[in-house]
């Protein structure tokens, strides 16, 4: 998990299928030494993992991404400039094991939009 290494959740609210969370990115995390040297950028791929972890943590289940219809990265997130990231995630349970998710990450502006579906794994 990236939670408590790459990021901490500083506040979280969950109701009616909507999760609002504020994340504090740890700019000293080891991934920033490689992405990129002297120029930290939160990897777009890590946002996908954060979505999965927040879902798993909130819904107390394990998920695998089945399909991301679209993920857009609209702005670069440099944790040495701003390490607070807001996540808004709306999910709808389509059947026993499938979950549709729309999420966005924002700082001053939206930096990532996600639309996709996850499948719940047997524990």
């Amino acid at each position: 998990m990236f939670k408590d290494s790459l990021y901490k959740i500083t506040s979280q609210d969950h109701h009616d299928g909507v999760i609002d969370a504020v994340l504090e990115i740890n700019k000293e995390d080891k991934i920033f030494t490689g992405h990129f040297p002297g120029h930290p950028v939160l990897p777009g791929a890590s946002m996908l993992q954060i979505i999965k972890e927040v879902l798993e943590d909130t819904l107390k289940a394990s998920f695998r991404l089945k399909k991301a219809d679209q993920i857009k990265f609209l702005a670069i997130s440099d944790p040495s400039v701003n390490n607070l990231l807001k996540l808004k995630l709306a999910y709808s349970i389509t059947d026993d094991i499938n979950l549709d998710v729309i999420a966005n990450f924002s700082q001053s502006d939206i930096c990532c939009k996600f639309k996709g579906s996850f499948v719940r794994l047997k524990s």
């Binding site: 950028v41 777009g44 695998r64 991404l65 399909k67 991301a68 990265f73």
Partner: peptide
């Protein structure tokens, strides 16, 4: 040079 992912479409994962 450094490249960034601008967008991803129809990303399907069949297994990890």
């Amino acid at each position: 040079t450094v490249g960034y992912i601008g967008s991803v479409k129809n990303f399907e994962v069949f297994e990890l």
